[in-house]
Protein backbone atom coordinates (compact mmCIF):
# COMPACT_ATOMS: atom_id res chain seq x y z
CA UNK A 1 0.00 0.00 0.00
CA UNK A 2 1.22 3.48 -0.94
CA UNK A 3 0.01 6.87 0.26
CA UNK A 4 0.07 10.36 -1.26
CA UNK A 5 0.34 13.72 0.46
CA UNK A 6 -3.20 14.30 -0.87
CA UNK A 7 -4.34 11.53 1.52
CA UNK A 8 -5.04 8.97 -1.18
CA UNK A 9 -4.16 5.30 -0.76
CA UNK A 10 -2.99 3.19 -3.72
CA UNK A 11 -3.28 -0.57 -3.63
CA UNK A 12 -1.44 -2.28 -6.51
CA UNK A 13 -2.88 -5.74 -7.16
CA UNK A 14 -1.29 -7.37 -10.19
CA UNK A 15 -0.89 -4.22 -12.23
CA UNK A 16 -4.29 -2.66 -11.45
CA UNK A 17 -4.15 0.03 -8.77
CA UNK A 18 -7.17 0.68 -6.56
CA UNK A 19 -7.38 4.27 -5.24
CA UNK A 20 -9.32 5.67 -2.30
CA UNK A 21 -8.93 8.23 0.46
CA UNK A 22 -7.53 7.52 3.89
CA UNK A 23 -9.52 7.35 7.12
CA UNK A 24 -7.69 10.50 8.20
CA UNK A 25 -8.92 12.35 5.09
CA UNK A 26 -12.49 11.11 5.54
CA UNK A 27 -12.44 12.25 9.16
CA UNK A 28 -11.13 15.69 8.18
CA UNK A 29 -13.72 16.10 5.41
CA UNK A 30 -16.63 15.27 7.69
CA UNK A 31 -19.88 13.72 6.43
CA UNK A 32 -19.58 13.20 2.68
CA UNK A 33 -22.76 13.98 0.74
CA UNK A 34 -21.78 13.94 -2.95
CA UNK A 35 -19.18 12.20 -5.10
CA UNK A 36 -18.50 12.57 -8.82
CA UNK A 37 -16.28 9.89 -10.35
CA UNK A 38 -14.44 9.80 -13.68
CA UNK A 39 -15.75 7.69 -16.57
CA UNK A 40 -14.48 4.15 -16.78
CA UNK A 41 -12.27 3.91 -19.85
CA UNK A 42 -10.98 7.47 -19.63
CA UNK A 43 -7.27 8.24 -19.82
CA UNK A 44 -6.01 10.50 -17.05
CA UNK A 45 -2.75 12.23 -16.27
CA UNK A 46 -1.14 12.64 -12.87
CA UNK A 47 -2.65 15.64 -11.00
CA UNK A 48 -5.82 15.76 -13.16
CA UNK A 49 -8.87 16.51 -11.03
CA UNK A 50 -10.63 13.18 -11.43
CA UNK A 51 -13.00 13.05 -8.48
CA UNK A 52 -15.12 15.71 -6.79
CA UNK A 53 -16.08 15.18 -3.16
CA UNK A 54 -18.55 17.37 -1.34
CA UNK A 55 -18.83 17.06 2.40
CA UNK A 56 -21.18 18.93 4.71
CA UNK A 57 -18.38 21.49 4.98
CA UNK A 58 -16.94 22.04 1.51
CA UNK A 59 -16.09 20.72 -1.93
CA UNK A 60 -12.69 19.18 -2.62
CA UNK A 61 -10.97 17.53 -5.54
CA UNK A 62 -9.14 14.26 -5.72
CA UNK A 63 -6.18 14.33 -8.11
CA UNK A 64 -5.12 11.39 -10.21
CA UNK A 65 -2.02 10.10 -8.42
CA UNK A 66 -0.54 8.58 -11.58
CA UNK A 67 -0.99 8.52 -15.37
CA UNK A 68 -3.14 5.74 -16.71
CA UNK A 69 -6.52 4.40 -17.77
CA UNK A 70 -9.48 4.33 -15.39
CA UNK A 71 -10.68 0.74 -15.69
CA UNK A 72 -13.42 0.69 -13.06
CA UNK A 73 -15.23 3.14 -10.74
CA UNK A 74 -17.14 2.42 -7.54
CA UNK A 75 -20.73 3.47 -8.31
CA UNK A 76 -21.82 2.33 -4.84
CA UNK A 77 -20.24 5.41 -3.26
CA UNK A 78 -22.04 7.68 -5.73
CA UNK A 79 -25.33 6.14 -4.61
CA UNK A 80 -24.37 6.33 -0.92
CA UNK A 81 -21.52 8.80 -0.32
CA UNK A 82 -21.74 8.14 3.44
CA UNK A 83 -19.97 4.81 2.83
CA UNK A 84 -16.72 6.78 2.49
CA UNK A 85 -17.03 7.90 6.10
CA UNK A 86 -17.84 4.35 7.23
CA UNK A 87 -15.18 2.34 5.39
CA UNK A 88 -12.80 4.63 3.48
CA UNK A 89 -9.92 2.16 3.27
CA UNK A 90 -12.06 -0.86 2.37
CA UNK A 91 -15.43 -1.04 0.65
CA UNK A 92 -15.49 2.66 -0.28
CA UNK A 93 -12.65 2.74 -2.82
CA UNK A 94 -13.00 5.34 -5.59
CA UNK A 95 -11.58 3.96 -8.84
CA UNK A 96 -9.19 1.43 -10.33
CA UNK A 97 -6.49 2.57 -12.72
CA UNK A 98 -4.10 0.75 -15.06
CA UNK A 99 -0.81 2.66 -14.67
CA UNK A 100 0.89 3.95 -17.80
CA UNK A 101 4.16 4.09 -15.87
CA UNK A 102 4.23 1.97 -12.69
CA UNK A 103 7.45 3.73 -11.62
CA UNK A 104 5.36 6.82 -10.79
CA UNK A 105 4.23 5.02 -7.63
CA UNK A 106 7.73 4.60 -6.29
CA UNK A 107 7.91 8.10 -4.82
CA UNK A 108 4.80 7.73 -2.69
CA UNK A 109 4.92 7.03 1.05
CA UNK A 110 4.60 3.67 2.72
CA UNK A 111 2.27 3.27 5.69
CA UNK A 112 4.88 4.24 8.31
CA UNK A 113 5.86 7.35 6.38
CA UNK A 114 2.19 8.34 5.92
CA UNK A 115 1.50 7.91 9.63
CA UNK A 116 4.45 10.17 10.40
CA UNK A 117 3.18 12.62 7.75
CA UNK A 118 -0.25 13.05 9.34
CA UNK A 119 1.30 13.17 12.79
Amino acid sequence: MKYTEEHEWLDDQGGIVTVGITAHAAEQLGDIVFIELPEAGSEVSKDDEVVVIESVKAASDILAPIDGEIVEVNEAIVEDPGKVNEDPEGEAWFFRIRPADPDQMADYMDEAAYKAFIG
Binding site: G30, D31, V56, K57, G82, N85
Partner: peptide, 9 residues
Protein backbone atom coordinates in the same frame (compact mmCIF):
# COMPACT_ATOMS: atom_id res chain seq x y z
CA UNK B 1 -18.33 23.54 14.84
CA UNK B 2 -19.10 19.91 15.65
CA UNK B 3 -18.69 17.23 18.30
CA UNK B 4 -17.74 13.57 17.78
CA UNK B 5 -20.97 12.47 16.00
CA UNK B 6 -20.48 15.03 13.21
CA UNK B 7 -22.75 17.52 11.47
CA UNK B 8 -25.15 15.04 9.87
CA UNK B 9 -25.91 13.04 13.02
Amino acid sequence: VQYAPGVMK
